[in-house]
Design a protein around this nucleic acid. Structure first.
Lengths: 71, 71
DNA sequence: TAAGTGGTTATCATATATGACAACTGTAAA
DNA sequence: TTTACAGTTGTCATATATGATAACCACTTA
């Protein structure tokens, strides 16, 4: 798996978890204190997120970091 | 857990896994194609690594990404 | 002594994640 | 139609991860 594929998979995983919680990108971004535009790019797999960004998302979605990157 | 603590824990986890494999920082860095200096900082918890960096390390150490961030 | 190994720290350049904001496309509902 | 919401895309500034190199310390070994 290359990095681009990894980013894509993690983006998909976040989207999947977010939607299963019925939260909008706007909402989730607000909870995490970042921009919805950045979350959109992240879910689309267009960025290489830092562990701190992923950690904030995992907390907001109430899953473990380990779970979030289990792709 | 704050970000600083998270970085510290992930750094410790990497060091733990690396040492259990009997690999030097120098070796691991070379396998991952980055500088030993950066790995040193990462293990010390002084950087906020990207998922791609952690992924390279997980591959080199033959553990899952999920395992690597299971802190 | 000297040379080698493992690790740390400093510095500089470059690439990019993120913050911030705006504009835009649907879509749904009034 | 108009309003509101969800998401996407673009741009700019700033912070920082990483690449690259060098100097340094501690330890071991010849």
């Amino acid at each position: 798996m290359n990095i681009s594929q990894l980013q894509q998979k993690i983006g998909n995983r976040i989207r999947e978890l977010r939607e299963s919680k019925g939260v909008s990108q706007q909402n989730l971004a607000a909870i995490c204190n970042f921009e919805k535009a950045n979350l959109s790019r992240l879910e689309a797999g267009r960025t290489n997120p830092t562990i701190s960004t992923l950690y904030k998302i995992s907390e907001a979605l109430e899953v473990s970091l380990s779970d979030l990157v289990n792709v």
